[in-house]
Design a protein around this nucleic acid. Sequence first.
RNA 1: GCCCCCAUCGUCUAGAGGCCUAGGACACAGCCCUUUCAAGGCUGCGGCGGGGAUUCGAAUUCCCCUGGGGGCACCA
Length: 477
Amino acid sequence: MDKIRVRFAPSPTGYLHIGGARTALFNWLFSRHHGGVFILRIEDTDRSRSTEEAIQAIIESMRWLGLNWDEGPFRQMDKLDRYHEEAERLLNSGKAYKCYCTPEELEERRKAALEKKETWKYDRRCLTLTDQEKLTCELEGKKPVIRFYCPNEGETVVDDLVKGQVIFENANLDDFIMVRADGIPTYNFAVVVDDYDMNITHVIRGDDHLSNTPRQILLYRALGYKIPEFAHLPMILGPDKTRLSKRHGATAVETYQDEGYLPKALINYLALLGWGYGDQTIFGLDELIQKFNLAGVGKSPAVFDPAKLEWMNGVYIRELSDDELALLLKPFLKNAGFALEMYDDGWYRRLAEVTQERLTKLSGIVGLSGFFFHRFEYQPEAVEKVLKKEGVPEILQKVLETLSGSFDFYSDEIEKRLRALVEQTGLKPKLVFQPVRVAVTGRTVSPPLFETIELLGRDTTVERLGEAIHIIDMASD
RNA sequence: GCCCCCAUCGUCUAGAGGCCUAGGACACAGCCCUUUCAAGGCUGCGGCGGGGAUUCGAAUUCCCCUGGGGGCACCA
Protein backbone atom coordinates (compact mmCIF):
# COMPACT_ATOMS: atom_id res chain seq x y z
CA MET A 1 0.00 0.00 0.00
CA ASP A 2 1.13 3.51 -0.77
CA LYS A 3 2.25 5.71 2.02
CA ILE A 4 -0.71 7.30 3.74
CA ARG A 5 -1.14 10.99 3.02
CA VAL A 6 -3.91 13.05 4.60
CA ARG A 7 -4.60 16.72 4.92
CA PHE A 8 -6.49 19.25 6.99
CA ALA A 9 -7.89 21.94 4.74
CA PRO A 10 -9.52 24.79 6.64
CA SER A 11 -10.89 27.88 5.01
CA PRO A 12 -9.38 30.92 6.72
CA THR A 13 -12.54 32.80 7.56
CA GLY A 14 -12.04 32.88 11.33
CA TYR A 15 -10.25 31.17 14.16
CA LEU A 16 -9.84 27.42 14.40
CA HIS A 17 -13.04 26.12 15.91
CA ILE A 18 -13.75 22.97 17.85
CA GLY A 19 -15.14 21.12 14.85
CA GLY A 20 -12.18 21.98 12.68
CA ALA A 21 -9.80 21.00 15.43
CA ARG A 22 -11.49 17.63 15.73
CA THR A 23 -11.18 17.07 11.98
CA ALA A 24 -7.52 18.13 12.11
CA LEU A 25 -6.93 15.82 15.06
CA PHE A 26 -8.45 12.77 13.38
CA ASN A 27 -6.39 13.38 10.26
CA TRP A 28 -3.30 13.87 12.38
CA LEU A 29 -3.91 10.76 14.47
CA PHE A 30 -4.58 8.73 11.37
CA SER A 31 -1.35 9.86 9.77
CA ARG A 32 0.71 9.31 12.90
CA HIS A 33 -0.84 5.91 13.48
CA HIS A 34 0.13 4.77 10.00
CA GLY A 35 3.44 6.55 9.84
CA GLY A 36 2.02 8.70 7.06
CA VAL A 37 2.14 12.34 6.08
CA PHE A 38 -0.08 15.11 7.42
CA ILE A 39 -0.50 18.16 5.25
CA LEU A 40 -1.93 21.58 6.04
CA ARG A 41 -3.69 23.28 3.18
CA ILE A 42 -5.38 26.65 3.32
CA GLU A 43 -8.52 26.79 1.19
CA ASP A 44 -8.55 30.49 0.55
CA THR A 45 -10.51 30.69 -2.68
CA ASP A 46 -13.29 32.67 -1.06
CA ARG A 47 -11.69 36.04 -1.56
CA SER A 48 -14.28 38.01 0.33
CA ARG A 49 -14.12 36.00 3.51
CA SER A 50 -10.53 34.78 3.72
CA THR A 51 -8.14 36.81 5.83
CA GLU A 52 -4.48 36.71 6.66
CA GLU A 53 -5.26 37.01 10.37
CA ALA A 54 -7.42 33.91 10.18
CA ILE A 55 -4.58 31.95 8.63
CA GLN A 56 -2.28 33.00 11.44
CA ALA A 57 -4.89 32.25 14.09
CA ILE A 58 -5.48 28.76 12.71
CA ILE A 59 -1.77 28.03 12.51
CA GLU A 60 -1.27 29.29 16.04
CA SER A 61 -4.03 27.05 17.39
CA MET A 62 -2.72 24.05 15.47
CA ARG A 63 0.71 24.60 17.01
CA TRP A 64 -0.72 25.04 20.47
CA LEU A 65 -2.58 21.76 20.13
CA GLY A 66 0.60 20.12 18.92
CA LEU A 67 -0.89 19.08 15.59
CA ASN A 68 2.28 19.49 13.60
CA TRP A 69 2.15 19.08 9.84
CA ASP A 70 4.75 17.59 7.56
CA GLU A 71 4.00 19.62 4.45
CA GLY A 72 2.53 23.05 3.92
CA PRO A 73 0.84 25.25 4.72
CA PHE A 74 -0.09 25.40 1.06
CA ARG A 75 -2.49 27.97 -0.28
CA GLN A 76 -4.85 27.42 -3.13
CA MET A 77 -4.46 30.99 -4.32
CA ASP A 78 -0.82 30.21 -5.06
CA LYS A 79 -1.67 27.75 -7.80
CA LEU A 80 -4.40 29.32 -9.89
CA ASP A 81 -2.54 28.40 -13.07
CA ARG A 82 -2.77 24.78 -12.20
CA TYR A 83 -6.57 24.92 -11.85
CA HIS A 84 -6.85 26.76 -15.15
CA GLU A 85 -4.76 24.11 -16.81
CA GLU A 86 -7.07 21.36 -15.60
CA ALA A 87 -10.20 23.36 -16.35
CA GLU A 88 -8.91 23.84 -19.87
CA ARG A 89 -8.49 20.10 -20.28
CA LEU A 90 -12.09 19.53 -19.28
CA LEU A 91 -13.25 22.30 -21.58
CA ASN A 92 -11.38 20.78 -24.50
CA SER A 93 -12.76 17.33 -23.91
CA GLY A 94 -16.30 18.64 -23.65
CA LYS A 95 -16.67 17.68 -20.02
CA ALA A 96 -17.05 21.28 -19.01
CA TYR A 97 -18.44 24.36 -20.70
CA LYS A 98 -18.53 28.08 -20.37
CA CYS A 99 -21.62 29.74 -19.00
CA TYR A 100 -22.45 33.39 -19.42
CA CYS A 101 -25.50 33.54 -17.20
CA THR A 102 -25.11 36.24 -14.57
CA PRO A 103 -25.77 35.61 -10.88
CA GLU A 104 -28.80 37.88 -11.16
CA GLU A 105 -30.29 35.94 -14.06
CA LEU A 106 -29.71 32.69 -12.27
CA GLU A 107 -31.30 33.97 -9.11
CA GLU A 108 -34.35 35.00 -11.06
CA ARG A 109 -34.77 31.65 -12.74
CA ARG A 110 -34.14 29.86 -9.47
CA LYS A 111 -36.87 31.84 -7.78
CA ALA A 112 -39.28 31.22 -10.60
CA ALA A 113 -38.67 27.49 -10.40
CA LEU A 114 -39.17 27.53 -6.69
CA GLU A 115 -42.48 29.33 -7.03
CA LYS A 116 -43.68 26.67 -9.39
CA LYS A 117 -42.55 24.17 -6.74
CA GLU A 118 -40.00 22.75 -9.10
CA THR A 119 -36.59 21.67 -7.96
CA TRP A 120 -34.04 24.07 -9.32
CA LYS A 121 -31.19 22.76 -11.37
CA TYR A 122 -29.12 24.81 -13.74
CA ASP A 123 -31.05 24.74 -17.01
CA ARG A 124 -28.02 24.34 -19.27
CA ARG A 125 -28.98 27.40 -21.24
CA CYS A 126 -25.33 28.01 -22.11
CA LEU A 127 -24.48 24.42 -22.99
CA THR A 128 -25.73 24.82 -26.54
CA LEU A 129 -24.49 28.32 -27.21
CA THR A 130 -23.15 28.72 -30.73
CA ASP A 131 -19.74 30.23 -31.33
CA GLN A 132 -21.50 33.33 -32.60
CA GLU A 133 -23.53 33.69 -29.42
CA LYS A 134 -20.46 33.18 -27.30
CA LEU A 135 -18.66 35.83 -29.25
CA THR A 136 -21.54 38.22 -28.71
CA CYS A 137 -21.37 37.63 -24.97
CA GLU A 138 -17.62 38.19 -24.97
CA LEU A 139 -18.05 41.40 -26.95
CA GLU A 140 -20.60 42.57 -24.40
CA GLY A 141 -17.82 42.17 -21.88
CA LYS A 142 -19.38 39.19 -20.11
CA LYS A 143 -16.97 36.98 -18.22
CA PRO A 144 -18.02 33.33 -18.25
CA VAL A 145 -17.89 30.84 -15.45
CA ILE A 146 -16.91 27.27 -16.23
CA ARG A 147 -19.46 24.61 -15.42
CA PHE A 148 -18.89 20.92 -15.12
CA TYR A 149 -21.07 18.86 -17.42
CA CYS A 150 -22.78 16.50 -15.08
CA PRO A 151 -24.27 13.32 -16.61
CA ASN A 152 -28.01 12.95 -16.14
CA GLU A 153 -28.09 9.20 -15.97
CA GLY A 154 -26.61 6.63 -13.70
CA GLU A 155 -25.55 6.85 -10.14
CA THR A 156 -22.41 7.67 -8.29
CA VAL A 157 -21.39 5.51 -5.38
CA VAL A 158 -19.33 6.75 -2.46
CA ASP A 159 -17.64 3.96 -0.55
CA ASP A 160 -17.17 5.74 2.70
CA LEU A 161 -14.93 4.32 5.39
CA VAL A 162 -17.28 5.62 8.07
CA LYS A 163 -20.72 5.72 6.48
CA GLY A 164 -20.42 2.69 4.27
CA GLN A 165 -21.76 2.68 0.74
CA VAL A 166 -23.79 5.78 -0.14
CA ILE A 167 -25.52 6.01 -3.48
CA PHE A 168 -26.40 9.23 -5.30
CA GLU A 169 -28.50 9.60 -8.43
CA ASN A 170 -26.61 11.65 -10.96
CA ALA A 171 -29.90 13.15 -12.06
CA ASN A 172 -30.01 15.05 -8.80
CA LEU A 173 -26.71 16.74 -9.46
CA ASP A 174 -26.51 19.81 -11.62
CA ASP A 175 -23.80 21.42 -13.71
CA PHE A 176 -22.02 23.11 -10.84
CA ILE A 177 -19.59 25.93 -11.31
CA MET A 178 -15.93 24.91 -11.26
CA VAL A 179 -14.35 28.23 -12.03
CA ARG A 180 -15.85 31.58 -11.21
CA ALA A 181 -16.09 34.49 -13.61
CA ASP A 182 -13.01 36.03 -12.01
CA GLY A 183 -11.00 32.90 -12.73
CA ILE A 184 -10.87 31.59 -9.18
CA PRO A 185 -11.88 27.97 -8.76
CA THR A 186 -14.69 26.96 -6.46
CA TYR A 187 -14.32 24.47 -3.64
CA ASN A 188 -15.48 21.31 -5.39
CA PHE A 189 -13.03 21.77 -8.22
CA ALA A 190 -10.03 23.03 -6.28
CA VAL A 191 -10.31 20.33 -3.67
CA VAL A 192 -10.15 17.60 -6.30
CA VAL A 193 -7.17 19.04 -8.15
CA ASP A 194 -5.35 19.63 -4.88
CA ASP A 195 -6.02 16.26 -3.35
CA TYR A 196 -4.77 14.71 -6.57
CA ASP A 197 -1.69 16.94 -6.80
CA MET A 198 -0.83 16.28 -3.19
CA ASN A 199 -1.31 12.56 -3.56
CA ILE A 200 -3.88 12.45 -0.80
CA THR A 201 -4.80 8.85 -0.08
CA HIS A 202 -7.56 9.44 2.48
CA VAL A 203 -9.93 12.36 2.59
CA ILE A 204 -11.09 12.66 6.20
CA ARG A 205 -13.52 15.51 6.77
CA GLY A 206 -16.86 16.47 8.30
CA ASP A 207 -19.93 14.72 6.96
CA ASP A 208 -21.36 18.04 5.83
CA HIS A 209 -19.20 17.27 2.80
CA LEU A 210 -20.74 13.91 2.10
CA SER A 211 -23.23 15.29 -0.41
CA ASN A 212 -20.42 17.07 -2.25
CA THR A 213 -18.55 13.85 -2.69
CA PRO A 214 -20.41 12.52 -5.74
CA ARG A 215 -19.65 15.77 -7.60
CA GLN A 216 -16.03 15.37 -6.70
CA ILE A 217 -15.94 11.74 -7.75
CA LEU A 218 -17.38 12.72 -11.12
CA LEU A 219 -14.62 15.27 -11.40
CA TYR A 220 -11.96 12.73 -10.48
CA ARG A 221 -13.21 10.49 -13.26
CA ALA A 222 -13.46 13.27 -15.81
CA LEU A 223 -9.90 14.32 -15.04
CA GLY A 224 -8.62 10.77 -15.08
CA TYR A 225 -7.49 10.90 -11.47
CA LYS A 226 -7.32 8.02 -9.07
CA ILE A 227 -10.09 8.36 -6.46
CA PRO A 228 -8.91 8.50 -2.83
CA GLU A 229 -10.60 6.84 0.12
CA PHE A 230 -13.22 8.93 1.87
CA ALA A 231 -14.09 9.05 5.56
CA HIS A 232 -16.84 11.42 6.64
CA LEU A 233 -16.87 12.24 10.32
CA PRO A 234 -20.12 12.90 12.13
CA MET A 235 -20.82 16.51 13.04
CA ILE A 236 -20.28 18.07 16.43
CA LEU A 237 -23.49 19.61 17.73
CA GLY A 238 -24.45 22.15 20.35
CA PRO A 239 -26.77 21.31 23.28
CA ASP A 240 -29.78 22.08 21.04
CA LYS A 241 -28.61 19.41 18.60
CA THR A 242 -27.85 21.83 15.82
CA ARG A 243 -24.40 22.18 14.35
CA LEU A 244 -22.01 23.65 16.91
CA SER A 245 -21.58 27.38 16.42
CA LYS A 246 -20.82 30.59 18.26
CA ARG A 247 -24.41 30.66 19.43
CA HIS A 248 -23.54 27.79 21.72
CA GLY A 249 -20.74 29.62 23.52
CA ALA A 250 -17.02 29.24 23.15
CA THR A 251 -16.13 27.39 19.97
CA ALA A 252 -12.72 28.90 19.25
CA VAL A 253 -9.76 26.80 20.24
CA GLU A 254 -7.95 29.97 21.27
CA THR A 255 -10.68 30.72 23.80
CA TYR A 256 -9.97 27.44 25.53
CA GLN A 257 -6.29 28.26 25.47
CA ASP A 258 -7.02 31.62 27.06
CA GLU A 259 -9.16 30.10 29.77
CA GLY A 260 -6.44 27.74 30.78
CA TYR A 261 -7.28 24.45 29.20
CA LEU A 262 -4.34 22.17 28.53
CA PRO A 263 -3.76 20.99 24.96
CA LYS A 264 -3.64 17.41 26.21
CA ALA A 265 -7.08 17.73 27.74
CA LEU A 266 -8.63 19.28 24.67
CA ILE A 267 -7.03 16.66 22.45
CA ASN A 268 -8.25 13.84 24.67
CA TYR A 269 -11.76 15.26 24.81
CA LEU A 270 -11.95 15.96 21.08
CA ALA A 271 -10.77 12.44 20.31
CA LEU A 272 -13.81 11.12 22.14
CA LEU A 273 -16.18 13.16 20.02
CA GLY A 274 -17.00 10.61 17.37
CA TRP A 275 -14.40 8.04 18.26
CA GLY A 276 -14.18 5.57 21.09
CA TYR A 277 -12.08 2.72 22.33
CA GLY A 278 -14.10 0.47 24.59
CA ASP A 279 -14.75 1.87 28.02
CA GLN A 280 -11.64 3.98 28.16
CA THR A 281 -11.94 7.73 28.74
CA ILE A 282 -8.46 9.02 29.47
CA PHE A 283 -5.87 8.62 26.73
CA GLY A 284 -2.31 9.85 26.60
CA LEU A 285 -1.17 11.16 23.25
CA ASP A 286 0.94 8.13 22.40
CA GLU A 287 -1.90 5.92 23.36
CA LEU A 288 -4.26 7.79 21.07
CA ILE A 289 -1.89 7.44 18.17
CA GLN A 290 -1.51 3.77 18.86
CA LYS A 291 -5.21 3.05 19.30
CA PHE A 292 -6.84 5.41 16.83
CA ASN A 293 -8.40 3.96 13.74
CA LEU A 294 -11.24 4.81 11.41
CA ALA A 295 -13.11 1.65 12.38
CA GLY A 296 -13.61 3.15 15.82
CA VAL A 297 -15.29 6.24 14.43
CA GLY A 298 -19.02 6.32 15.03
CA LYS A 299 -21.68 7.39 12.57
CA SER A 300 -23.88 9.52 14.76
CA PRO A 301 -23.30 13.16 15.64
CA ALA A 302 -22.00 14.12 19.08
CA VAL A 303 -23.04 16.94 21.36
CA PHE A 304 -20.17 19.02 22.67
CA ASP A 305 -20.22 18.97 26.47
CA PRO A 306 -18.13 21.74 28.07
CA ALA A 307 -18.66 20.25 31.53
CA LYS A 308 -16.94 17.01 30.62
CA LEU A 309 -14.11 18.89 28.96
CA GLU A 310 -13.64 20.87 32.12
CA TRP A 311 -13.60 17.77 34.26
CA MET A 312 -11.03 16.24 31.96
CA ASN A 313 -8.91 19.35 32.12
CA GLY A 314 -8.86 18.96 35.88
CA VAL A 315 -7.63 15.41 35.45
CA TYR A 316 -4.72 16.64 33.37
CA ILE A 317 -3.95 19.53 35.69
CA ARG A 318 -3.64 17.05 38.53
CA GLU A 319 -1.12 15.10 36.50
CA LEU A 320 1.23 18.07 36.30
CA SER A 321 4.27 18.38 38.55
CA ASP A 322 4.36 21.34 40.94
CA ASP A 323 6.99 23.05 38.84
CA GLU A 324 5.09 22.58 35.60
CA LEU A 325 1.89 23.86 37.11
CA ALA A 326 3.61 26.84 38.73
CA LEU A 327 5.05 27.79 35.38
CA LEU A 328 1.67 27.55 33.67
CA LEU A 329 -0.07 29.49 36.42
CA LYS A 330 2.11 32.58 36.33
CA PRO A 331 0.82 34.07 33.08
CA PHE A 332 -2.72 33.89 34.42
CA LEU A 333 -1.70 35.59 37.65
CA LYS A 334 0.18 38.24 35.76
CA ASN A 335 -2.73 38.75 33.44
CA ALA A 336 -4.98 39.39 36.40
CA GLY A 337 -2.71 42.24 37.36
CA PHE A 338 -1.10 40.56 40.35
CA ALA A 339 2.40 41.64 41.39
CA LEU A 340 4.30 38.44 40.67
CA GLU A 341 7.53 39.83 42.14
CA MET A 342 5.99 39.63 45.62
CA TYR A 343 7.05 36.01 45.83
CA ASP A 344 9.86 33.72 44.75
CA ASP A 345 9.85 30.51 42.71
CA GLY A 346 9.65 28.30 45.77
CA TRP A 347 6.51 30.10 46.78
CA TYR A 348 4.86 29.58 43.40
CA ARG A 349 5.73 25.92 43.49
CA ARG A 350 4.06 25.67 46.87
CA LEU A 351 1.04 27.60 45.57
CA ALA A 352 0.76 25.13 42.71
CA GLU A 353 0.95 22.28 45.16
CA VAL A 354 -1.88 23.48 47.34
CA THR A 355 -4.20 24.64 44.56
CA GLN A 356 -3.65 21.81 42.10
CA GLU A 357 -6.56 19.62 42.99
CA ARG A 358 -8.87 22.58 43.23
CA LEU A 359 -8.21 23.77 39.70
CA THR A 360 -10.20 22.74 36.75
CA LYS A 361 -8.95 25.51 34.49
CA LEU A 362 -5.69 27.41 34.93
CA SER A 363 -7.62 30.67 34.97
CA GLY A 364 -9.26 29.45 38.17
CA ILE A 365 -6.08 30.32 40.02
CA VAL A 366 -7.02 33.99 39.93
CA GLY A 367 -10.11 33.59 42.05
CA LEU A 368 -8.37 31.07 44.26
CA SER A 369 -5.33 33.12 45.13
CA GLY A 370 -6.22 36.79 44.84
CA PHE A 371 -5.99 37.31 48.60
CA PHE A 372 -2.31 36.43 48.51
CA PHE A 373 -1.63 39.43 46.34
CA HIS A 374 -3.86 42.21 47.47
CA ARG A 375 -6.13 43.52 50.18
CA PHE A 376 -9.68 42.31 50.03
CA GLU A 377 -13.11 43.10 51.33
CA TYR A 378 -14.45 40.54 53.77
CA GLN A 379 -17.39 38.71 52.29
CA PRO A 380 -20.37 40.11 54.22
CA GLU A 381 -21.83 36.66 54.50
CA ALA A 382 -18.60 35.27 55.90
CA VAL A 383 -18.50 38.02 58.48
CA GLU A 384 -22.07 37.34 59.53
CA LYS A 385 -21.84 33.59 59.64
CA VAL A 386 -18.37 33.13 61.02
CA LEU A 387 -16.71 36.19 62.49
CA LYS A 388 -19.66 37.45 64.47
CA LYS A 389 -20.00 34.20 66.37
CA GLU A 390 -19.69 34.27 70.12
CA GLY A 391 -16.10 34.30 71.38
CA VAL A 392 -14.46 34.71 68.00
CA PRO A 393 -12.38 37.80 68.84
CA GLU A 394 -10.89 35.98 71.79
CA ILE A 395 -10.07 32.94 69.67
CA LEU A 396 -8.49 35.05 66.98
CA GLN A 397 -6.48 36.89 69.59
CA LYS A 398 -5.09 33.62 70.89
CA VAL A 399 -4.29 32.47 67.37
CA LEU A 400 -2.58 35.75 66.73
CA GLU A 401 -0.44 35.33 69.80
CA THR A 402 0.37 31.74 68.93
CA LEU A 403 1.48 32.60 65.41
CA SER A 404 3.46 35.60 66.59
CA GLY A 405 5.72 33.31 68.59
CA SER A 406 9.11 32.54 67.20
CA PHE A 407 9.21 29.29 65.22
CA ASP A 408 9.79 28.19 61.63
CA PHE A 409 6.74 29.39 59.72
CA TYR A 410 5.86 26.22 57.82
CA SER A 411 2.48 24.59 57.50
CA ASP A 412 3.38 21.54 59.60
CA GLU A 413 4.63 23.67 62.40
CA ILE A 414 1.69 26.04 62.14
CA GLU A 415 -0.73 23.16 62.23
CA LYS A 416 0.98 21.63 65.26
CA ARG A 417 0.70 24.83 67.24
CA LEU A 418 -2.85 25.65 66.25
CA ARG A 419 -4.01 22.15 67.05
CA ALA A 420 -2.36 22.44 70.43
CA LEU A 421 -4.33 25.62 70.89
CA VAL A 422 -7.55 23.88 69.95
CA GLU A 423 -6.75 21.13 72.41
CA GLN A 424 -6.08 23.64 75.10
CA THR A 425 -9.31 25.59 74.57
CA GLY A 426 -11.38 22.45 74.26
CA LEU A 427 -13.26 23.92 71.32
CA LYS A 428 -14.27 22.02 68.21
CA PRO A 429 -11.60 22.41 65.54
CA LYS A 430 -14.06 23.91 63.12
CA LEU A 431 -14.95 26.68 65.56
CA VAL A 432 -11.35 27.79 65.57
CA PHE A 433 -10.26 27.18 62.02
CA GLN A 434 -13.17 28.71 60.14
CA PRO A 435 -12.81 32.12 61.84
CA VAL A 436 -9.10 32.06 61.12
CA ARG A 437 -9.78 31.22 57.50
CA VAL A 438 -12.20 34.08 57.11
CA ALA A 439 -9.88 36.43 58.95
CA VAL A 440 -6.92 35.81 56.67
CA THR A 441 -8.63 35.15 53.34
CA GLY A 442 -11.86 37.09 53.68
CA ARG A 443 -13.89 34.11 52.63
CA THR A 444 -15.25 30.82 53.89
CA VAL A 445 -13.65 28.89 51.07
CA SER A 446 -9.92 28.75 50.53
CA PRO A 447 -7.04 26.38 49.91
CA PRO A 448 -5.99 24.30 52.94
CA LEU A 449 -5.66 26.61 55.94
CA PHE A 450 -2.19 25.86 57.27
CA GLU A 451 -0.60 26.00 53.86
CA THR A 452 -2.48 29.20 53.18
CA ILE A 453 -1.12 30.75 56.37
CA GLU A 454 2.37 29.63 55.46
CA LEU A 455 2.08 31.16 52.01
CA LEU A 456 0.68 34.37 53.41
CA GLY A 457 3.67 34.68 55.72
CA ARG A 458 3.79 35.57 59.37
CA ASP A 459 3.56 39.33 59.02
CA THR A 460 0.55 39.38 56.74
CA THR A 461 -1.21 36.70 58.74
CA VAL A 462 -0.78 38.53 62.02
CA GLU A 463 -1.78 41.77 60.40
CA ARG A 464 -4.98 40.32 59.00
CA LEU A 465 -5.90 38.60 62.24
CA GLY A 466 -5.58 41.92 63.99
CA GLU A 467 -7.67 43.57 61.36
CA ALA A 468 -10.40 40.99 61.67
CA ILE A 469 -10.55 41.48 65.42
CA HIS A 470 -10.85 45.19 64.84
CA ILE A 471 -13.65 44.77 62.34
CA ILE A 472 -15.63 42.61 64.73
CA ASP A 473 -15.20 45.23 67.44
CA MET A 474 -16.44 47.96 65.15
CA ALA A 475 -19.45 45.94 64.09
CA SER A 476 -20.52 45.07 67.60
CA ASP A 477 -20.45 48.71 68.73
C1' G B 1 -39.55 21.10 -2.05
C1' C B 2 -35.53 17.52 -3.62
C1' C B 3 -31.13 14.51 -2.11
C1' C B 4 -28.20 12.34 1.75
C1' C B 5 -26.83 10.95 6.76
C1' C B 6 -28.09 9.55 11.77
C1' A B 7 -31.00 7.22 16.07
C1' U B 8 -28.58 3.07 23.48
C1' C B 9 -29.11 6.96 30.23
C1' G B 10 -29.64 14.65 30.20
C1' U B 11 -24.44 14.29 27.52
C1' C B 12 -20.08 11.18 25.44
C1' U B 13 -20.33 6.14 24.63
C1' A B 14 -19.65 0.15 25.29
C1' G B 15 -22.61 -3.26 22.85
C1' A B 16 -21.02 -6.82 15.77
C1' G B 17 -28.25 -12.54 17.82
C1' G B 18 -27.97 -15.61 23.54
C1' C B 19 -22.24 -13.32 28.00
C1' C B 20 -27.62 -7.53 28.82
C1' U B 21 -31.05 -8.01 35.27
C1' A B 22 -28.01 -3.10 28.91
C1' G B 23 -21.58 -1.72 31.04
C1' G B 24 -18.30 2.74 31.68
C1' A B 25 -17.40 8.24 31.89
C1' C B 26 -19.40 13.40 32.69
C1' A B 27 -23.43 15.78 35.08
C1' C B 28 -26.93 15.23 39.20
C1' A B 29 -28.33 13.30 44.43
C1' G B 30 -26.85 10.94 49.04
C1' C B 31 -23.11 8.95 52.27
C1' C B 32 -17.89 8.44 53.87
C1' C B 33 -13.28 11.19 54.53
C1' U B 34 -12.60 16.34 56.43
C1' U B 35 -10.85 22.95 59.46
C1' U B 36 -13.68 25.18 54.24
C1' C B 37 -13.63 24.02 49.12
C1' A B 38 -11.81 20.40 46.33
C1' A B 39 -9.71 15.61 45.31
C1' G B 40 -10.80 10.51 46.47
C1' G B 41 -14.11 6.26 47.83
C1' C B 42 -19.05 4.10 47.99
C1' U B 43 -24.28 4.17 46.73
C1' G B 44 -28.22 5.97 43.93
C1' C B 45 -30.97 8.32 39.77
C1' G B 46 -31.23 7.45 34.63
C1' G B 47 -31.48 4.70 28.37
C1' C B 48 -32.21 0.68 23.70
C1' G B 49 -37.85 6.62 19.67
C1' G B 50 -42.48 3.72 17.64
C1' G B 51 -44.51 -0.32 14.66
C1' G B 52 -43.94 -4.57 11.87
C1' A B 53 -40.74 -8.76 9.98
C1' U B 54 -36.77 -12.67 10.46
C1' U B 55 -35.36 -16.04 14.59
C1' C B 56 -36.09 -20.88 19.58
C1' G B 57 -34.03 -16.00 20.96
C1' A B 58 -32.98 -8.94 18.76
C1' A B 59 -30.28 -3.01 21.62
C1' U B 60 -27.82 -5.97 17.90
C1' U B 61 -30.54 -8.10 11.05
C1' C B 62 -34.50 -6.20 7.42
C1' C B 63 -38.73 -2.82 6.22
C1' C B 64 -41.94 1.32 7.39
C1' C B 65 -42.94 5.54 10.42
C1' U B 66 -41.33 9.33 13.52
C1' G B 67 -37.62 12.46 15.16
C1' G B 68 -32.94 15.02 14.55
C1' G B 69 -28.98 16.70 11.44
C1' G B 70 -26.56 17.98 6.80
C1' G B 71 -26.56 19.39 1.63
C1' C B 72 -29.07 21.61 -2.73
C1' A B 73 -24.45 29.17 -3.80
C1' C B 74 -19.84 32.55 -8.90
C1' C B 75 -19.22 29.51 0.60
C1' A B 76 -16.06 25.94 2.01
